[in-house]
Design a protein around this nucleic acid. Structure first.
Lengths: 205, 205, 205, 205
DNA sequence: CATGAATGAGGGTTCATTCAT
DNA sequence: AATGAATGAACCCTCATTCAT
C-alpha cells in the first residue's frame, strides 16, 4: 500500500518533471526557430524522443506554447503585482517594474522571445485571448505609472505618454532577443544603465 | 510608330506596375501574418488572382520577400549614405539618421515589419546573406556615430555604447509594428519626440 | 483579286510551312527530353515564341505528338507497302525492309525516338489507337516474312520466329537513339553490317 | 531477454521488409507508367497507403528510383565481375555475360525497364552520375570482350565492334520490356537462342 | 512511456490551356 | 500571329496528429 503510494507519488513527480523538461526544450526551440516554423519533430529531436511521443505528454503543439506562455505570464504578473501593491512612489515603481522585467527576461528568456515574436499571431486564436488581456493590463499599468509621474512633476509633460509607454515596452522586452545570461553585463547592470538612459537621456548634462 | 512606342512603353510600365502592386500586397500580408505562416494562396487572394498566377511574375515565395527586402534596404542605405556623406557633426548626424529611419518606416512599413520579424530566420539562407551584411554595416555606422559623440563630449561616457546602440536599434525599428500613417502623430513629430526622449531622458530637469 | 489570291496562297503556304517548322522543333524537343517531361514552354522556347502562341497552330500538346507520329508512320508504311508489293523473295524482302527502316530512321529520327519511348504510354489513349494497329501490322508483316524464310529453307528452323521478330524489331528501331546523320557510318553501311550480323552471325566461319 | 531480442530482430527485419515491399511496388509502377509520368500517389495507391506515408520511408520520389536502380546495378555488376574474374576465354565470357544479363532481367525486370527508359533523363541529375559511370564501364567491358574475340580469331573482323556492342546492348536489355517470368520460354532458353542468333546468325548454313 | 507507421489536410510549385489585346 | 497574363487542376512534399504495439 505504502509502496504503491510511493510509486504513484514518484510517478506523478517524475511525470511533472518530464513535462517541465519537455516544455523547457520546446520553449528553447520555439524561441530560436519561431513557433510556426518549428516542427513537432524538431522539438522531439531536441528532447531525444520521437515526434509522436510528445502527444503522450501534451495534447497538441498549441498546448505546449500555451503552457509555456501561461507559466511565464503568471509569474511575471505575480512579480508586478507585488511591486504595485507595495505602494512605492512613481519613480521607485518605475525602476522596480523595469528591474522586475529584466529579471523575468533572465528567468524566462525563451518564453519572452516567443511572447515577443508570436503573441500577435497567436492572439487571433480564442485560446490565447489571455495574451490580449495581459497586453492591455500591461499598458494600463504603465500608463498609470507614467501619468502619476507626470502629475507628480517627476516626468516631462511635453512628451506623449503613449509614446513613452511604447518606447519602454519595446526596448525592455526586445532585450530578450539579445540578452545572454553568460554575457558581459549582468541583468542588474543592464537594468541600471537602461533606467539611467531612459530617465536621464544619453546626452552629457 | 509613335503608337507602337507608346504601346511598348505602356506595356513595360504596366508590367513593372503590376509587379510592384503584387509586391506591395505580398508585403502587407507577410507583415501582418508572418512570412512563414502566410500561404501563397493568401497572398494571391489578397491580390485577387489565383495562387498559381503569382508564379508568372515571381519565381517563388522566397523571391517575393527577397525583392521586398532588397528594395527597402537599398533605399534605406541610399538615405543613410547621404546623411553620412554630408559631413554633419555627431549630434546632427544622430538626429538625421533617426529622422531618416522614421521616414523609412513611413514609406516601407510592411517591409520594415518583415525585416524585423523574419530576418533572423531568413538570414540562415545564403540567398539572404545581404541581411547579415546590412545588419553589420548598420551596427558599425551607429557605433561610429556614438563613439564620435562620446569623444566630442556630447554623449555620456558612463553608458555602454553597445547598449545604447541596441537601445536605439530596437526602439526605432520596432516602431514599424505600431506606426500607422493615418495615426495621430506624423512621422516627423514622432521622430522629434523620440530624439528628445533618447537624448534628454524623460525626467524633468 | 489576284493580289488577294496570291496573298491567301502565300498565307496558306506560309501557315503550312510554319506548322511544319514548329512540328520539327517539337519533335526534336520531345525526342530529347521525353514527351511527358517536356513542357509546352520548352517547345515554345525552342521555337522562339511564347507558350500560348503554340495554341494558335495546334489544339494541344497531344495534337503535336499525334501529328508527328502519324506523318512518320504514314510514310513508313508507304515504303513498307511498296516493298511488300514488289513480290521479292524472302531474303530480298528481309533486306529491303531493314534498309527501308534505316532510311526511315535517317529521315524521321526524332519521330522514331518518340515512337520508341512513348508509344507504350500513349497507346493507352484512344486517340492513339493507331499505334497499336501499326504495331500489330508490323508484327504480322515480319512474322510472315520470317515464316516464309523458314518455309523456303533460308532461315534456321531451330529458332523461335517470335524471338527473331522481337530481336529485329528492337535492334533496328533502337538504333534511332544513337544514330547520327553526321556520324562516321552512313545509313546504308549500317544497314549492310546490320544485315550481315543478323543473317550470318558474328562468329568467324 | 530472448523475447526482446526476437522482437527487435522482427522489427528490424519488418522495417527492411516493408521498405523492400514498397520499393518493389514503386519499381513496378515506375516501369509500367514511366517515372516522370507516375505520380507519388499512384505508387502509394498501388502500395495501399496514402501518398504522404511514403515519405516516412523515403526522402523523395527521386530517392525511390535511386534505390531501385542502385540495388539493381550493384547486383548486376557483382555478377559481371565474377564472370570477368573467372578468366574464361572470349567466347565463354561472351556467353556468360549474356546469360547473366538475362538472369538480371528475370530478377530485376522493373528496375531494368526503368533503367532503359529513364536513365538518359535521370543522368542529367548529379545524383545519378553513377548511371553514366555504369554505362561507360559496361561499354568498356563489352568492347574489351569483343576485341579479344576478334584478336583470337573467334569473331568476324569485317564488322565494326562498336556496332556489335550497341547491337548486343540494345537487344539484351530491351528484352526486359517484353520478357515475362511466366511466359513460354524460360530465361535460360531465351539466352541460349539469343546467343545462337547473335553468334551464328539466322540463316541456314 | 515510447515507438513506428500511417493519416490527411494543406502548402509551394508546375504546367497545359485560355483569351483579350 | 503572337503576346502576356491568368486559370485551375494536379503534383511533390511536409507536418500535426493518431494509434496499435
Amino acid at each position: 500500500m505504502s509502496a504503491r503510494r510511493r510509486d504513484s507519488q514518484t510517478t506523478a513527480a517524475a511525470r511533472a518533471g518530464r513535462r517541465a523538461e519537455l516544455l523547457a526544450t520546446a520553449a528553447e526551440v520555439f524561441a530560436s526557430r519561431g513557433y510556426a516554423a518549428t516542427t513537432v519533430r524538431e522539438v522531439a529531436d531536441a528532447a531525444d524522443i520521437l515526434g509522436g511521443s510528445l502527444y503522450y505528454h501534451f495534447d497538441s503543439k498549441e498546448a505546449m506554447v500555451d503552457e509555456i506562455l501561461s507559466v511565464f505570464l503568471a509569474d511575471m504578473w505575480s512579480a508586478y503585482d507585488k511591486v504595485i501593491a507595495s505602494g512605492l512612489g512613481a519613480r521607485e515603481t518605475f525602476e522596480a517594474l523595469i528591474t522586475e522585467s529584466f529579471r523575468c527576461i533572465e528567468r524566462y528568456r525563451p518564453a519572452v522571445v516567443i511572447y515577443q515574436n508570436e503573441s500577435k499571431h497567436l492572439a487571433t486564436n480564442p485560446r490565447f485571448s489571455y495574451l490580449v488581456d495581459s497586453q492591455q493590463r500591461f499598458r494600463e499599468m504603465w500608463l498609470s505609472v507614467l501619468d502619476r509621474g507626470v502629475t507628480d512633476g517627476i516626468l516631462r509633460a511635453d512628451l506623449d505618454t503613449g509614446l513613452i509607454y511604447r518606447f519602454i515596452r519595446d526596448t525592455v522586452w526586445v532585450a530578450a532577443s539579445w540578452y545572454r545570461t553568460d554575457g558581459p553585463l549582468p541583468a542588474e547592470e543592464i537594468a541600471r544603465q537602461y533606467i539611467a538612459m531612459v530617465l536621464e537621456g544619453i546626452l552629457t548634462t
